[in-house]
Write a protein that binds this DNA or RNA. Structure first.
Length: 266
DNA sequence: ACGTAGTCCTGACGGC
DNA sequence: TGCCGTCAGGACTACG
């Protein structure tokens, strides 16, 4: 579910509501959340009785910076979402929560693909270039496009560019007018330029509209994202393209469905 | 080094 | 109504 724009929307919401809050308790109801890398007692020791001094994001990871210098990273997987509440509400699929002096941060996750852990530095997260970060520079981007792997899979590879998921990969390629099955190293200079520019454009526009809701995604105030109304190709197979009236097609690439307009995209 | 398929989970939807 | 297959915003592993 949550790709970069959704995680960023959540980050902004948390900043508004929980910046400076004191964490009293962390509880994990689903032990799978840490993938066996840390036990609950250790997590508690590292996290409890700390202030939330900053909220960050790294690709699709949400980062909670603690006053003891540790960072709690939280990946929402496919269906993770947060809600802030005065009490522990027994919301469905509640998998973890933080009790703070500014309220409870409840985490629910239907499919249990979410993951969290405590790190000392963001270097510990495997990650590529964040398209909204300082390292997103043309030369760095260009250097990555050397393989013949299809461009759609390249965009989804978090170790190259981090934050793009299946929805935005399709939307970006449509806007950049590039077919999803083109080998990455076959792009012309002009196409690379277009792609380089389009990636942050689409992501920023989506953040402006507080992300995309297909079914599960909600921001921390339980509001759906409004970028769903602006999608041009994702989930639009069989419908006419906005731009040219051609019919949107759907194919599988790297095991993921990919929607595109074969007239607009070359 | 690459692509692909299987795996982890749970729920929704369509076809018969 | 019920059963079954397929699919879903992600990402890891194993295999060829």
């Amino acid at each position: 579910m949550p790709e970069l724009p959704e995680v960023e929307t959540i980050r902004l919401g948390l900043e508004e509501r929980l910046l400076g809050a004191l964490i009293k308790t962390i509880d994990l109801r689903d032990q799978k959340l840490t993938r066996g890398q840390v036990d609950l007692l250790t997590i508690k020791k590292l996290v409890e009785n700390n202030y939330l001094v900053k909220f960050g994001r790294c690709g699709k990871n949400l980062l909670l910076f603690l006053s003891n210098g540790n960072i709690l990273f939280w990946h929402l997987g496919m269906t993770g979402s947060f809600k802030i509440s005065e009490n522990i509400e027994e919301i469905p699929y509640l998998r973890a929560y933080l009790e703070t002096d500014k309220g409870y941060l409840l985490y629910s996750d239907i499919r249990r693909f979410g993951k969290l852990g405590v790190i000392k530095s963001t270097n510990e997260l495997k990650k590529g270039i964040d398209p909204l970060g300082d390292n997103y520079l043309y030369d760095n981007f260009n250097k990555l496009l050397t393989s013949n792997k299809v461009i759609k899979s390249f965009l989804l590879d978090q170790e190259k560019i981090s934050g793009i998921g299946n929805i935005y990969a399709d939307e970006i390629l449509w806007k950049a007018k590039i077919l999803p099955n083109r080998p990455a190293n076959s792009l012309s200079t002009e196409e690379i330029n277009r792609l380089f520019k389009t990636i942050p454009e689409v992501l920023k526009e989506a953040i402006k509209h507080r992300g995309t809701t297909i079914s599960d995604y909600r921001d921390i105030n339980s509001n759906p994202g409004e970028y769903s109304e602006r999608l041009k190709v994702y989930g639009k197979e069989g419908k006419p393209c906005n731009e040219c009236q051609g019919i949107i097609k759907k194919i599988k690439l790297g095991g993921r469905s990919s929607c595109f307009c074969s007239d607009c995209q070359k």
